[in-house]
Design a protein around this nucleic acid. Sequence first.
DNA 1: CGTTTCGTTGAAGAGTGTCAAGGCCAGTGG
DNA 2: CCACTGGCCTTGACACTCTTCAACGAAACG
Lengths: 243, 243
Amino acid sequence: MNAPAISIANLRVACSNCNLRELCLPVGLSLKEVERLEELVATRKRVKRGDALFRAGDRFESLYAVRLGFLKSTVMSQDGREQVTGFHMAGELVGLDGISTEAHSCDTVALEDTEVCVIPYDRLEEVASSMPVLRNHFHKVMSREIVREHGVMLLLGSMHAEERLAAFLLNLSQRFEARGYSRTEFVLRMTRAEIGSFLGLKLETVSRVLSRFAQDGLIDVNQKHVRIVNPDGLRMIVSGQGT
Amino acid sequence: MNAPAISIANLRVACSNCNLRELCLPVGLSLKEVERLEELVATRKRVKRGDALFRAGDRFESLYAVRLGFLKSTVMSQDGREQVTGFHMAGELVGLDGISTEAHSCDTVALEDTEVCVIPYDRLEEVASSMPVLRNHFHKVMSREIVREHGVMLLLGSMHAEERLAAFLLNLSQRFEARGYSRTEFVLRMTRAEIGSFLGLKLETVSRVLSRFAQDGLIDVNQKHVRIVNPDGLRMIVSGQGT
DNA sequence: CGTTTCGTTGAAGAGTGTCAAGGCCAGTGG
DNA sequence: CCACTGGCCTTGACACTCTTCAACGAAACG
């Protein structure tokens, strides 16, 4: 754990060529501005499956833009209960929790081999001060995270197991689609226990509900492989009209 | 509803004299910097109990710093389920949800007569661009909100009714204390249903658990009036060691 | 002072959790 | 190549927490 299996690739980054730029960057940047950004994103970092990008308590220094791979973030209470607060995929920004106290308050762990762009925070602040577009974009990203978490609170606070799972699947579907993958067929990178933790359910409940969905012809499940057969059916369930 | 009972008080604001400045402002500002801030916070706004400061869908223009009073924020799903996402008291900043899409995504409603400082967002951006201390403070406030919501997710996702209520009471207690009020004796500004919505419980459950706490000598409850008798007992419950 | 909203409490039931057993699959070493 | 192992997933039976439904009492409001 002391010499983590994380290799720092001191590669020259090219945001302008990155196929994630629509997700990652503000729109309407001049070429010159993109160049300044590329200076900002100095390095990349690889994180092997199972390793942490950062852990609660780590000094906060950088934000990370996921380039490829899949991660989860978890918080832990003093008595050891763990809660998954989110799953992250390509184009998403992680590490925002660290700004408030200059130390991270959650663990972020790769669920498959992952590569991130490292964005040193003090340099981001610097560049942002003279680039209103970037600053504004950054504020919007943070705000979007707050809004996303409101949605999770709604889910955890007022939805039943089936509704939670249906919403979860549709959310994944939509995010995969936005990245050019199939919206109907994908692989769950996380275990049932991790899904359950995120949704406030036990892994057995997750398993049971997925089986029920399959039986009702809403999805096909085979271990981690999922195919959405009837998205409208899932939407019905999310809106509380399922059966 | 169309002509809301909100009066705009075009008063000169004086952050330098405000007794909330420790909560609201970054530390270590020069007098001149505080003056620039006071220009920023141009007006105040009163919101009567029951009225909304803003509603989901409203165009986002300003952030609001609560000067005095008490508010709740709620999100609503398409099918009409409502979830309280937070309660806000003096010194806290609300409206951050609006930045992401330039429209608010939640309702924020006063639970008692409330007064807020209006902070026009475009002017905040302006001033922040040349005031690193302020910008950094603002980022920390947003990040803190993200961390707070992680805590709520932990609570909703992995705690029992008694643990949720105990955590809720201790959180209120601590926030009242930080504002110079009693940490042991306070008035709940929200209804049981609102507490329940926030905690993912039904109002009857909230009522029952509070009664049980009272019976166990942890608190005194009389309608909205609460006195914390045994805070350590509540802490035990939060950490899953209750009974 | 009536009306309405809010809070408390009880009884019964639904929805998840818990516990336990077994199956599937990938990786490992013989 | 095959058996073995350990992690992950599925399914059943049962327990328990929380919700639902209902009735009543207390406080707030016009």
